[in-house]
Simulated assay, not measured.
Amino acid sequence: SVEGVIQKSSNVGALKISQKMSPREMWDVYTALGYGQKPQLQFPGAVTGRLRPWKTWRPIEQATMAYGYGLSASLFQMAHSYTAFAHEGQIIQTTMLKSGDPASGVKVFSPQNAAAVRKMLQMAAGPGGTGQKAQTVGYSVGGKSGTAHKQVGKGYASNKYRSWFTGMAPIDQPRIVVAVMIDEPSAGQYYGGAVAAPVFSEVVQQTLRMMGVQPDMAVKPQIVVQAVEESF
């Protein structure tokens, strides 16, 4: 199922979904989410990333881009794209300044589809998912782990990785989006669900507490001990 593709972090599933879309459709969604676009943010290090024009895509490139190879993005861009799922399908404009006005954005998905993806992200961070270590006491969370061979020159290193976890909390009415990336994890583990998700959990726990957000879960999450490995 589509839910299972997200929960189990299946590259094969992502590829099969991409085959139901034209290159133009995929490119339009990626672009609407901010990939390949320089963030409108006056801050050092705001980069464009790399998303080639859809007319140049070969079938194999469309397939690999479905699960994250063949394009590049900053961690900031990843976090920004998740606002579309956290904010009823609208991607929120970025700013460094706090505002008392309600957040406004540009519609990318329907509110129903955004809610459906949030549910999938919650499954990915729950029992049977690749991001179980993202769970936190008192708050529901949802997010997606990721692991990729590190790019070196024009290819990918066989023994160097970047691992990340990006998600939001509380899941029904998100208040925060948190993205964590570990560059070349070296403690014997490298999957994003193993090395980045625990950092996400700690940041979410402390941030929501400092913000005074009321817990939406009465009990400690049931973190399953048996790990689920990601495909990448």
Rank of each mutant, 00 (worst) to 15 (best):
K16Y: 14
E3N: 12
S74W: 01
I17Q: 07
P23W: 03
G68S: 10
K8Y: 13
L51C: 13
A63D: 11
V5Q: 08
A32D: 06
Y67M: 11
V12D: 07
P59H: 14
Q40M: 12
Q93F: 12
I60P: 05
R52T: 15
T31I: 02
F85Y: 04
M21G: 01
I6F: 06
G36R: 00
E88L: 10
A73M: 10
I91A: 03
T64H: 01
V12T: 14
S72C: 06
P44C: 03
E3V: 06
R50M: 09
T83D: 02
I6N: 02
F43N: 01
E88R: 13
Q42Y: 09
G70H: 03
A103L: 11
T31L: 03
Q37P: 12
I91Y: 01
E88D: 12
Q40F: 07
P59M: 03
T31N: 08
T94Q: 14
A46G: 04
G68Q: 12
S99C: 11
M26W: 04
R24A: 09
A103R: 11
Y30L: 14
P23Q: 10
Y69W: 12
G13H: 10
S99I: 09
M21E: 04
Q90E: 12
G100L: 05
P53W: 00
L75A: 08
L51A: 05
T94G: 15
G34H: 01
Q77Y: 06
S10G: 07
F43G: 00
A84Y: 00
Q7G: 05
R52V: 14
